[in-house]
Design a protein around this nucleic acid. Structure first.
Lengths: 206, 206
DNA sequence: TAGATTGTTAATCGATTAACAATC
DNA sequence: TAGATTGTTAATCGATTAACAATC
């Protein structure tokens, strides 16, 4: 790490730890060692202890980690003890699947607004949420404190939508469009493109 | 790298190169240098040249890379010059979105069978594809030469579905369920979990 | 030719792993 | 106490970058 920042790759593993701890908890366990956790995640116990040590000491020597308290610590580090509001742009098939996906809300992410260009979906309701015209996007969200946006529009319009979201103060973007978005420094982008994933797997096939 | 294998991280960048080359082509360019490509992808030109050099020399000194021929070479390396058949299990909201997503077929991935447990969707047609009962999965696909499976079932049943797919000869799995699947050596798994992506971004927010 | 850019090697950087003293 | 496992440091490993000769 450059100064005293935690490497991004370490951060990206924390949600996996939370997920696995949850699973262990559901299996009825209450304590776990770094090597058990490592087995589950196909990682070395060293790496897990090293990762955690960036944030402090969470275990008890000779015993391991209390699952609930470790999970709580990690959730606090990742800012997961709050409900994060999300704005969605594009209510095609992917957008609709996301609106219907309860995993979002169960994990603390709430879609509070959805926009589209098509009169076919504008006005449509998903639960209590009504799809609005993308023309009204700035008016609707720039005053709110939303920090997360989901882009589920076609590739051609993704960059434009992205620019507009950033202008409205969005700081993190979940991008479903198959394009590499250009954003200013300090804006997080996560790309979800199943085709890229498939294309790297086919290298190993045949 | 251990022996003479290409590092996985290099492989994972190749589809991005293909994507960007496509974009440049659409913009009307026919030649690109490693530094231009690096600018687009926020990478150093060194890294791009190093990555490509694992597979040979594709450029011309003093000039750069012919976009079409580099793209063609990369597509061949990734085995993208064929149509890959995909079997899908789970036709809920996510599965339906995938069935309706034309990006799959446009990029050479064809969903040839879809299975579900629910009588509500069994028999339903998406284009020419009819959803079948998951009970018939083995009967339907074990004899085929499909190598790719998409798991779009709830978390609870994902591992079971995964085991059955592997038994049918599936070698690569696109997993939409929020669980870490356990698979035998040599089976590729790519996880698509938007929540994990969101959870690593929230670390940097607030 | 002169300028540009590749392909490749060596240097650097960062991440992972091994080892072990501390201690529950 | 003896056994187990943490937290941390040092060693190792692998990936990225810089540099440059080759050459289009």
């Amino acid at each position: 790490m450059k100064n005293n920042e935690v490497p991004e790759i370490v951060i990206s593993r924390l949600p996996l730890y939370v997920q696995t701890l949850n699973q262990l908890l559901r299996d009825g366990k209450s304590v776990v060692s770094s090597s058990e956790l490592g087995d589950k995640l196909k990682m070395t116990s060293s790496q897990i202890r090293r990762d955690l040590s960036y944030f402090g000491g969470f275990g008890k020597k000779g015993t391991g980690y209390d699952i609930i308290s470790l999970m709580e610590s990690l959730r606090k580090i990742l800012n997961l003890n709050q409900i994060w509001q999300v704005v969605m742009v594009g209510v095609g098939h992917v957008g609709q699947a996301l609106l219907n996906y309860d995993g979002f809300s169960r994990k603390g992410f709430e879609i509070i607004a959805a926009f589209d260009v098509s009169p076919k979906v504008i006005g449509k309701k998903y639960g209590t949420l009504e799809v609005k015209s993308v023309d009204d996007m700035e008016k609707e969200i720039c005053t709110l404190q939303v920090e997360i946006g989901a882009i589920t529009v076609p590739a051609e319009s993704a960059q434009l939508v992205c620019d507009r979201l950033v202008k409205c103060g969005i700081k993190a973007i979940l991008n479903y469009a198959p394009v590499a978005l250009v954003v200013p420094d300090g804006i997080q982008v996560s790309n979800i493109d199943p085709v890229l994933q498939l294309q790297k797997m086919t290298y190993y096939l045949k």
